[in-house]
Design a protein around this nucleic acid. Structure first.
Lengths: 249, 249
DNA sequence: TGTATGCAGATTGTCGGCAATTTTCCGTAT
DNA sequence: ATACGGAAAATTGCCGACAATCTGCATACA
């Protein structure tokens, strides 16, 4: 996992913990497991924004002491996914819907940049990785797996960013995409997890532009992608369920 | 402090700890103090890149147990300022000089963007804050305070970014500027901490452009600022101390 | 001589407990 | 009915200790 590499370098697996589930019980993976689980629950809205959580409950839930729980919480706080209320508890970072326009502006800028860079600097390996991600995405669409689709869509775009060969921008982009996961989840939920399939074509065209090293087209497609996402989200926010019902005076 | 707000919300000072130094000894500030101290030492190169540190020594140095030390280290690891070697120790993140071109590219993009946004969205309060920072910067130049100059220069640019009114971009920009502090420190050290004063004029012109809402000029000046920094750094890397010495065959 | 093995030292990861601080709730007086 | 005061509950911040794991070195063995 990505977060693993962030905090542990060169950790070797002991030979007796080949099985996936027992690996997580190995010393050194307690805090990481909790971190990853909580992070995913926050971004998938399983834990609701502003929800209050406390260390003791989490310790009991994961069957460990408070130390690894605290480590996970500290990391999540430093990523602005949690906020600590001293001597009171910890809350999931509120979802500030009023910041959505700012978010779209920032995402658009970075997305255009990394996609353009990808068109310029991609090599054969990059293209293969991007296509792999796109194939996984298509499979999620087929199976109607909304959660998987959100995740793989993120991977797809990050692979593109990596092809741009600018580590700083990849990190910035990854963070922005993750920040948006909660809004995106909200949007999909509103459609009962049914999926728009146009995104598939959009992805394919983007791959072609990157392959052909058409910088301007790649950037334009990246912008379209953001704009479409924004429009869908605005439609969701503007949807009215009772517009055709007459209220008698 | 900024980092305080990240992890603590609404903490009230108890009445008996008005004095600055005793405030740091108050419960809840142990980890924060260590975090801020270490962070500053890393970014100012007091702690050298790739230097190995261990929790026990830090605990002894700060006169606390390992718990608050660990909390500080976890935060620094999640900011990529430290790297953990499991069961072995923790090292200061290596300074990868080969990533400098990537860094400049990213900084240029974001700096141009936030400065342009500032010219568009600034109000009277923003301008006042920017001018305050610039005054503090000028004072550092007068006094020949190199370390202060680096810090206040950062504050100056962050105030500009804030005037752009995009929280995501401010956060991205802040992180990029901090990432560059170590390289910048390296550069100033090479000049025995003597200071180039042209930056003052550059800042003044930037303020004027933002005040006049000249978007293109502001962006151009921002780019110049980055380019100048890059050129100075390259000059430093290319500087030869023995070019005029003849070696007899 | 080269390689495997085991022991000692060092460092981290985790645990249970205690104290400080805040919040909450209840009784009391106005 | 409401404001005020104090005790109890809840929660975090910190501590000291223990165990697991890794490193390095000395030693035994082929």
């Amino acid at each position: 996992m990505e977060s693993c590499r962030l905090s542990f370098i060169g950790r070797k697996m002991s030979t007796k913990t080949i099985q996936t589930e027992s690996r997580k019980n190995t010393r050194g993976y307690g805090a990481v497991t909790i971190y990853e689980t909580l992070r995913d629950e926050i971004l998938s809205l399983t834990l609701q924004p502003s929800e209050l959580i406390d260390e003791a409950s989490l310790a009991k839930r994961f069957g460990v002491s408070r130390s690894p729980v605290r480590e996970a919480l500290v990391r999540l706080v430093s990523e602005s996914l949690l906020q600590t209320l001293p001597n009171k508890g910890t809350i999931v970072a509120p979802l500030r819907i009023e910041e959505f326009p700012q978010y779209v502006d920032a995402l658009d800028l970075i997305q255009r940049t990394v996609t353009r860079l990808a068109a310029r600097n991609r090599n054969a390996t990059d293209l293969q990785r991007i296509r792999d991600a796109q194939n996984r995405f298509a499979r999620c669409v087929e199976q109607g797996d909304a959660l998987g689709m959100i995740l793989v869509n993120r991977d797809f775009h990050i692979e593109i960013a990596k092809a741009g060969k600018n580590h700083h921008l990849v990190q910035i982009y990854r963070r922005l995409l993750d920040d948006g996961r909660r809004s995106l989840r909200l949007y999909f939920k509103s459609y009962n997890d049914s999926l728009p399939s146009e995104m598939n074509d959009n992805h394919e065209r983007m791959i072609d532009a990157i392959d052909a090293q058409d910088l301007d087209l790649a950037e334009r497609l990246a912008r379209e992608h953001t704009t479409e996402m924004q429009q869908r989200f605005l439609d969701y926010l503007g949807a009215r369920q009772t517009a055709d019902i007459t209220v008698s005076a």
